[in-house]
Amino acid sequence: METTPLRTGGQEETEAVIARYQSMVYGLAFAKTGSGADADDVFQEVFLAYWNAQTKFRDEEHRKAWLLRTTMNLSRRVTAATPRRKNVPLEDAEAVAAPFREEEENRVWAALQSLPEEQRLPIYLFYFEDLSTEAIAKALRVRPGTVRMRMTRGRERLRTLLKGDYFDES
């Protein structure tokens, strides 16, 4: 696997990092803000911050953790700046422009967006980003036990909303 220098480095190195992590950053921002436009803004701000910080990372996990934390912080700032409800009722969420190709995908995403943020984000990071409970705990700055409990509650609500085992054990 091609490695990327652990220092932010020049534009070429940064572009490589963006290519690797843009989906993660954008997806987390979208899950948090519920808005594609806001997620675009967060995406740009995160990588501009990355570029300007010129940080040297201990390892790839450190870089990834830095990007996740920065995405969380900047998403919070965007959310605070824009008047909005904290979570969107399912019936309203479905009325928003569908971001995915398939109807089922949009239904799953709408159900996810209807969860309170504290349940939505751990579930998103676990199922979409394949993060461990410990990594999620670090990104969200809560205890792993708290992550597990929130995921349990979120999964129960999703099971009721989706009437299917999308987020259950296979």
Partner: peptide, 9 residues
């Protein structure tokens, strides 16, 4: 599939 579609504009 959903992850693949989650990209900035």
């Amino acid at each position: 599939s959903m992850k693949e579609q989650l990209n900035p504009s």
